[in-house]
């Protein structure tokens, strides 16, 4: 089991993303980096942030940040820890989560909405990690 959030978790995520042919197809023209921001609730007492460099269907880099402001990115996808757990468990759809207010996106929404299949594949990838929570 891999703890979420942790560097180990995002390392596994990167590895699995790069093995996901469906993601590679869906994101083959995607250019843009992301910060995934996990806001504290429940047992998570401080925010956690991941930086992901996503480029043409591959994840070129993944890093757990020491603070949410350590890096900037084209997009930030943020939500409460409990909602991230729901997302990873496929109980929350990544786009429906945005429309329903469980997640917020900062960045070019028009661009993201052209890659909803890629977003689903990222979530699909996350579900494959044997995850344990704080």
């Amino acid at each position: 089991m891999v703890k979420f959030p942790s560097q180990e978790w995002i390392d596994q995520f990167k590895e699995l993303v790069n093995q996901n042919a469906a993601y590679e197809d869906a994101a083959r023209t995607w250019e843009g980096d992301f910060i995934f921001l996990v806001l504290p609730d429940g047992n998570l007492t401080a925010p956690a942030a991941f930086y992901l460099d996503l480029w043409h269907g591959k994840c070129r880099g993944a890093q757990m940040l020491s603070s949410p402001t350590e890096k900037t990115a084209d997009f930030t996808y943020e939500g409460l820890y409990s909602n991230w757990k729901g997302l990873i468990a496929k109980q929350i759809d990544p786009i429906k989560g945005l429309l329903g207010g469980k997640f917020k996106l900062r960045g070019n929404m028009m661009k993201v909405m052209r890659y909803t299949r890629a977003a689903k594949e990222l979530v699909e990838t996350a579900t494959k990690i044997p995850t344990e929570y704080a």
């Binding site: 197809d25 869906a26 023209t29 786009i95 052209r114 909803t116 299949r117 689903k120 594949e121």
Partner: peptide, 20 residues
């Protein structure tokens, strides 16, 4: 294919269509 692939209309489609 590219335009259909990037349409928001596939967001909630019951089967996720690849470009193929």
């Amino acid at each position: 294919v590219t335009r259909a692939d990037q349409s928001t209309c596939v967001t909630a489609n019951p089967r996720v269509p690849s470009s193929a």
